[in-house]
Computed example of a mutant assay.
Amino acid sequence: MLTARRSIVAAGVVLSLLVAASSAMADPGPGTECPPLVFDCDIHSGGNKPPTPGKPGGGGGGGGGGSAKCMARDGSGGQFEVPCFDEESGWFDASSSCYWRLMEPQPPAEDPVWAGHAPGDGAVYNGQCPGQPLAGGFRWFQAPPPGYGGGPNLEALAQEAVTKMRLLGADVGIAPKQGGTGTVGVPVWVWNGPSPQTTGPTSASATALGVTVTATATVADVVWNFGNGSSVSCAFPGTLYSPSFGLTPPSAASGQCGIAGYSRVGDYTVTATTTWAVHWVGGGQQGDLTTTRSSQVPVRIGELQVVGQ
């Protein structure tokens, strides 16, 4: 009964910490929308339109799935993957590299394993350590071992770390410049202004119940949709346009990004959707997730005007 009560209290502490973290981030800054209890929210660079949740390319962002792994240590200092929970062995604790299962029933009061403590003051657990057969055994703990009962939600901590990074969509640069007018058939150049929040890499950490998760985000690619049915994917920031380029179309082989031009006059919206790849480590586990951010800019295309006609 005491052990069950401690598990309930531990679960309540985790929820309280995560709710507190969400409340602290309820107002992350201009251009950001965070629903209650949602850690990974949509963040937009200046001039972007408000997001439309769930619609790709609509100016918003979203999170992707990931997977967590528990890593055990062997006698030579190497690591290998193990299940985070085993029905026979119990819950895995990365700090000891052992599984721990509550002894049921608990040993009698005179058993030396209590180390001078009375039954009810903490509890005795049985440890099994993959890769370290001489470790483990029966041990008294004042509180459940780290990781017992699942511990803090490491993926939620990773998402919290991602929120702390304040990742943005592309800081869009474009030629023809914003507010100007391009010409039918003339190449359009785009690029992503470099910064930790737009091109990465960038890192942040989050902590709960003594466990810290550190996440590092890098840009996997940016998909540029030009509003005329054409799009390009650039895994690089692109190249700032220079007048010396003339009418030469952008070349991906040279790290340039854009299209050969529009075929019709009109007003278009260029949408840049950045996919961030995030790798996180902490609590003896590691995993990967993806998240997206979108930016939009308008572009106007007109016809070439010839003087005297």
Results as ranks from 00 to 15, higher is better:
residue 195 S to F: 05
residue 5 R to A: 15
residue 172 V to L: 04
residue 10 A to E: 15
residue 168 L to S: 06
residue 166 R to T: 03
residue 179 G to T: 05
residue 168 L to G: 03
residue 120 G to A: 09
residue 7 S to T: 10
residue 42 D to V: 08
residue 271 T to A: 07
residue 85 F to W: 05
residue 219 V to R: 13
residue 206 A to M: 03
residue 71 M to D: 13
residue 114 W to S: 07
residue 308 G to I: 10
residue 119 P to D: 04
residue 106 Q to V: 11
residue 130 P to S: 08
residue 200 G to L: 07
residue 122 G to F: 01
residue 30 P to R: 05
residue 20 A to M: 05
residue 291 T to Y: 00
residue 53 P to E: 11
residue 86 D to N: 13
residue 99 Y to F: 05
residue 3 T to P: 07
residue 268 Y to C: 02
residue 40 D to H: 02
residue 209 L to D: 11
residue 106 Q to W: 12
residue 217 A to W: 01
residue 98 C to I: 01
residue 36 P to W: 05
residue 201 P to F: 03
residue 113 V to C: 15
residue 172 V to S: 05
residue 221 D to M: 04
residue 258 G to M: 08
residue 203 S to D: 10
residue 16 S to A: 14
residue 100 W to M: 06
residue 95 S to V: 13
residue 33 E to F: 08
residue 290 T to K: 08
residue 278 V to N: 04
residue 61 G to M: 01
residue 89 S to F: 00
residue 173 G to Q: 06
residue 190 V to H: 09
residue 150 G to L: 13
residue 175 A to T: 14
residue 2 L to Q: 11
residue 208 A to Y: 05
residue 89 S to G: 00
residue 3 T to L: 15
residue 184 V to Q: 14
residue 205 S to K: 09
residue 255 G to Y: 01
residue 199 T to H: 01
residue 290 T to P: 04
residue 271 T to S: 10
residue 105 P to A: 06
residue 101 R to C: 02
